[in-house]
Amino acid sequence: MARFLLWRALQTVVAMLGVSVAVFLIVQLVPGDPIRLALGTRFDEELYQAMRARAGLDQPLLTQYGGWLARAVTGDLGVSFRSGEPVTRLLLARLGPTSLLAGAALAVALAIALPLGIVSAVRSGSLVDRIATGFSQLWISVPDFWSGIMYILLFALLLGWLPASGYVSPLDDPVRAAHHLVLPAMTVGLISGSVLTRFVRSAVLEALHQDYARTARAKGLSRWQTVRRHVLPNAWISIVTAVGLQLGFLLGGVVIVEVIFEWPGLGRLAYDAVVRRDYSLLQGAVLAIALMFLVVNFLVDLLYGYLDPRVRRR
């Protein structure tokens, strides 16, 4: 187990380095010169050179990367090209809302996917299965920018049950916070839930067809007892992997949903950074999103060890 973890930690670090190179290159590869863009029509050669020097853009690429990485490791991601605020501070402010939305959406997704996926696998081919499969196919196909707007029109405008948008911190007012959370969490959760339902279904279905499941049935266990004792423990690994990927995706900020629902999360920050060509901020946002993804996947690996004794023994 220790070797496995060490190996995975090493892999994660290498992946992070790869990400850092890609993120660093964002500023180098964008069409047009970021300083040039920031200056717009107040362009002046002297001022331009001064600003380039201040941003370190006049240094050789490798030197720039080294300096940037050294600062990034200590949490210094530079300042926003546009506002001059520290990027790290801007990112940290978005973590709370993004985590809240990701957590709530994942809860919605699991509440749908686990029961529905298991039942439709166990009762494969039944009416329940066909309805579940049909619905999950539908929700996977529906784009979030459309369903989000439909929920706003239905639940906020037509029925007036829920606020159309906005974020309230649960620390300030838990009830209002919950109200504001419902629509965005539902928008993302239904889609994630549909993806997961299919994963759960196929994982359970696969385990059901294994020899040990047949043996368990043969020695007299009921169908549900077999599922609980033999099928699910074996299906968990692939289910957890899928859930981990979904969580990474959710934490990365569901860009369009955050934009539609005026949710002050990481995705919206990245979106605004793109719109404003604020490349230093975009760098920070992409780095944060990638890191969260890697960290979640690393945590999933840790879970493997817990779920599967064979991994522990490796």
Partner: peptide, 18 residues
């Protein structure tokens, strides 16, 4: 001042009084 970039959201909020 709230920042609402999606027009449907802005106009729905306007119609619901938010």
């Amino acid at each position: 001042f709230r920042f609402v970039s999606e027009p449907t959201t802005a106009l729905t909020n306007l119609r619901t009084g938010a």
